[in-house]
């Protein structure tokens, strides 16, 4: 193996989390995650977009002092993309580890974000890593890797917007400890929005109130209602001097839905919470 090529290829996905990321625990998720890590159980983070799944994982990687390998799954992601492949460099064939293989080798936390987006056959390659064998077989090189104790596999999964055809197979999902994520309770969310965006408590409180109202539309035409992330974005715009109503229109109403009626209703809610 030629280290330079290898390093170049996988570096992009590996992060050493050196500074403590801001994360406010909602329930016992930190303790659960630590227990799972200690017992070498794979973890599944379930929940809608923008509620802090990725942030939580960065926080945990920092807490546990492990590097984090993140793979954003997409529908063209193949098993080779995870495991590695032979590349030809100057007439020579070189094996390059994929991010999963690399994470196993260095004992990192491997995070497969939105795993259902990946091709069905891809998810199967993680199976032997998730049970007590914790092994990874590289067919092409004939290598059999045994994961070190520090290695941990984490997947995220958003049950909300996946279509019927894209659902996690029971045989996959039942290999994980599932931690449910939902929008944080209002008090906590106020803290989060205030901290992340820099707006004052009062403004954060109103943003959170707006978020709460919009989330009531969850089953009425909105698949993914205003996430904490969107509230933070609106807060950032407000903090930079954009008028609150306009900021919410830009950061919340517009991204949330293309349905004109829903958008109009959201704008009405904005006008209800924020005066001109």
């Amino acid at each position: 193996m030629e280290p330079s090529v290898n390093a170049r290829w996988v570096d992009a996905q590996v992060t050493e989390v050196s500074e403590e990321p801001f994360y406010l625990p909602v329930r016992d998720e930190v303790a659960v995650f630590e227990a799972a890590y200690a017992r070498r159980l794979p973890v599944m983070l379930k929940g809608p977009t923008g509620v802090g799944k990725t942030r939580f994982l960065r926080y945990m990687a920092w807490r546990l002092g492990r590097p984090l390998v993140t793979v954003a799954c997409h529908d063209d992601l193949t098993a080779s993309d995870l495991l590695g492949r032979y590349l030809i460099t100057g007439g020579e064939t070189v094996w390059i580890d994929g991010p999963l293989t690399h994470a196993v080798r260095i004992g990192a936390i491997c995070y497969l974000d939105e795993i259902v987006e990946a091709r069905k056959d891809t998810t199967v390659v993680i199976h032997p890593l998730t049970d007590d064998r914790r092994r990874l077989r590289l067919e092409k090189t004939g290598e059999l890797l045994v994961a070190p104790p520090e290695f941990m596999l984490v997947i995220s999964y958003n049950p909300g917007y996946q279509s019927l055809t894209k659902n996690l197979k029971p045989s996959t999902r039942q290999r994980f400890v599932a931690i449910d994520f939902d929008f944080p309770p209002p008090d906590l969310e106020v803290e989060i929005v205030a901290h992340e965006s820099g707006v004052d408590r009062e403004m954060a409180r109103r943003l959170v109130k707006l978020g709460g109202l919009i989330r009531n539309l969850r089953d009425a035409g909105l698949d993914e209602p205003a996430s904490t992330r969107l509230l933070v974005y609106a807060g950032l715009l407000i903090h930079s001097g954009i008028a609150p109503r306009r900021a919410c229109e830009l950061a919340i109403a517009a991204p949330i839905s293309d349905d004109p009626a829903v958008r109009e209703a959201v704008l009405d809610l904005v006008a209800t919470v924020f005066a001109e």
Partner: peptide, 12 residues
């Protein structure tokens, strides 16, 4: 729009 509005304000 009003139906959605009321739904949001009244938590459904």
């Amino acid at each position: 729009v009003l139906a959605l509005y009321v739904r949001a304000l009244s938590a459904g």
